[in-house]
């Protein structure tokens, strides 16, 4: 099957990736027409994922600019979401509700004060993820480093995780996909969501596509980092700013924190 790429967690693939990684050290390399691997300096992770770190995001909503969509565009490019095409007979409005979205902008207004807030929403990488609890096959899983993601080869597309996620963070692939990125296997009939650029994690890169893009725009509203490292920029930021989890009442201990909501 065309879209049957291996996930980054299977041993076979790890070897392949080591090889590709070595080749890619030189710069961007073309492995197949249309498939460009990222240029990375660091060698791919040889050790297993460790629970010494917990990856997360801190979002300073005061810095998130209205009308800016840099993070979304970057995410779409990074994960091949920009390759989705609307099935011809489908109406635009329906497509809007059916296409996969990993990160979205939300604009809020306080009912009492009228204050406007802009923020990006994505999978909150819950420490106690309801999506993982309910998944019948274990396709939804949490890595030791706190990243919650879907194993595309175990997912049967039951969509129970989507029912369970309090943040509406997940998308179901409603249509056949073509021309995907090797680094991000996706496919019709499966569920997917933000995985904190897990591919970059395995290559030991610094940040996520969204955080990079936001910084490049000069906004710096998204900070990525290790929540367990007290010295990391994200921990420093969380120390300095009052932040909260969305739907704190559910006590999921999310890995994504927001300031100013």
């Amino acid at each position: 099957m065309k879209d049957e790429n291996r996930t980054n967690l299977e041993p076979v693939d790890r070897e392949r990736r080591t090889f590709i990684g070595a080749a890619a050290g030189v710069g961007a390399s073309m492995v197949a027409p249309g498939v460009i691997l990222h240029a990375v300096e660091a060698a791919p992770r040889a050790t297993s994922v460790s629970s010494d770190v917990r990856w997360g995001l801190a979002i300073d909503t005061a810095k998130c600019a209205e009308g800016c969509s840099a993070c979304i565009d970057a995410c779409d490019r990074e994960n091949g979401l920009d390759l989705q095409t609307k099935p011809k007979p489908l109406s635009e409005s329906k497509w809007d509700q059916q296409k996969a979205v990993w990160i979205r902008k939300v604009k809020l207004q306080d009912n009492q004060t009228g204050r406007i807030t802009n923020l990006p929403m994505m999978c909150q990488h819950c420490e106690d993820p309801p999506c993982v609890d309910v998944c019948p096959t274990g396709a939804s899983f949490k890595r030791a480093d706190g990243i919650v993601m879907v194993d595309r080869h175990l997912c049967i597309g039951c969509r129970y995780c989507m029912m369970a996620c309090p943040y509406k963070a997940r998308s179901f692939i409603h249509e056949a996909l073509e021309g995907q990125l090797t680094s991000v296997p996706r496919g019709k009939g499966c569920v997917e969501s933000c995985n904190l650029c897990v591919d970059r994690r395995d290559y030991g890169e610094e940040s996520t596509a969204c955080a990079d893009a936001c910084a490049a725009e000069g906004h710096n509203a998204i900070v990525f980092g290790d929540l367990k490292d007290p010295e990391s920029p994200i921990s420093q930021l969380l120390k300095a700013l009052p932040t909260r989890q969305i739907r704190e009442d559910l006590e999921l201990n999310t890995g994504v924190r927001y300031a100013g909501v």
Partner: peptide, 17 residues
């Protein structure tokens, strides 16, 4: 809609919230 932000009204969203 999922009650994400109590006390706030969602004005715009890229994912039909």
């Amino acid at each position: 809609p999922m009650p994400l932000f109590p006390g706030q009204t969602i004005l715009e969203s890229g994912f039909g919230d």
